[in-house]
Design a protein around this nucleic acid. Structure first.
Length: 296
DNA sequence: AGTACTACCTGGAGGC
DNA sequence: TGCCTCCAGGTAGTAC
């Protein structure tokens, strides 16, 4: 479930740890994760210096200088993707923090296992691992350093963090209609970066029921929702992302935001605001949790 | 055109 | 203990 805050956490970790690394070997173990490119295409890049780590919505954009020119490695983590970097000589991070859910990894995040699909070896001896148990994630290779050049990128609306609340509210006004507020938030062509967790959190913070028709929101409530979306995403980033199962940052460390969630994953538990039992439902074909008293 | 639904994929949880 | 079924969810493609 890597959404904007999780991808941003990975991006910051890579920027801190792996800027300037030169990839010299591409080990593709499961080519199914590659989209519109082949393992041969990657190998043909030659030594590739990683110049910048950027992000657009839930996509990680790795800007590379290759012998054949500038390329962007586009990474989508899908539901369970991990993109980690271990510097040469750096010790393995063994085991994970045990979560409230009780879940715990048996393998270190930097161990190559059956779910490790791509291994990038660097001239320094460092190594990137792309691991994704559920295989919803994808790697794309795009020419140049732009934010377009592939249908997946071209379809995206503005990145949520590129907007202020007023700008986001205006976009909501333009794109609202018969569909639910939750469907609006999840549509990456409206605003890129919001997924199921932060959509539910933002709706709770705004006091808006996720199933409400987006076109029925008043201007004031749209503005509140926009502010709450940005606040929920910001909180997620400050907490280094939400880990329910698989998410880890570039260093293999889990995020702490799961403990800060108000509604997601808390169906049946009391509302933090009023104590009413939180209700589970399906909205926009996604598991959804809301407070029947605080949200209307 | 806008909206809704489903396939993809796998591990984990729960039932028996 | 082990087998089975169901569930989770981001995106693209299809259907309405």
């Amino acid at each position: 479930m890597p959404e904007l805050p999780e991808v941003e956490t990975v991006r910051r970790g890579l920027e801190r740890r792996a800027l300037g690394e030169v990839v010299v070997g591409w080990g593709v173990r499961h080519s199914g994760v590659l989209e519109d490119c082949t393992a041969e295409d990657l190998s043909a890049l030659g030594p590739s210096r990683l110049e910048r780590f950027e992000r657009l919505g839930k996509y990680l954009l790795i800007r590379m200088s290759c012998t054949s020119g500038e390329r962007t490695l586009v990474v989508h983590l899908g539901m369970s993707g991990q993109f980690t970097f271990r510097a040469s000589g750096e010790g393995l991070v063994e085991g994970f923090v045990r979560l409230a859910s009780g879940y715990r990894k048996s393998l270190g995040p930097h161990a190559v296992d059956a779910h490790t699909h791509v291994v990038l070896d660097c001239a320094s001896g460092g190594r990137f691992l792309y691991r994704d148990p559920r295989r919803f994630g994808r790697l794309l290779l795009v020419r140049g350093w732009g934010n377009s050049g592939h249908p997946r990128l071209d379809r995206l609306g503005p990145d949520a963090l590129s907007l202020d609340a007023a700008g986001l509210s205006r976009i909501f006004a333009l794109r609202s209609g018969a569909r639910s507020v939750k469907a609006l938030l999840l549509d990456q062509s409206v605003v890129a970066g919001v997924g199921n967790i932060y959509a539910d959190e933002a709706c709770f913070d705004a006091g808006i029921r996720p199933s409400v028709r987006s076109g029925r929101l008043s201007r004031i409530r749209r503005e509140t929702l926009a502010a709450c979306v940005l606040e929920a995403l910001g909180r997620g980033i400050r907490n280094s992302g939400t880990t329910f199962r698989d998410f880890v940052g570039a260093d293999g460390i889990e995020g702490a935001n799961a403990e800060d969630l108000r509604v997601y994953g808390r169906a049946g538990l009391p509302c933090v605001r009023c104590g009413t039992e939180l209700r589970a439902s399906v909205v926009a074909a996604r598991g959804t949790v809301h407070c029947p008293k605080c949200q209307d």
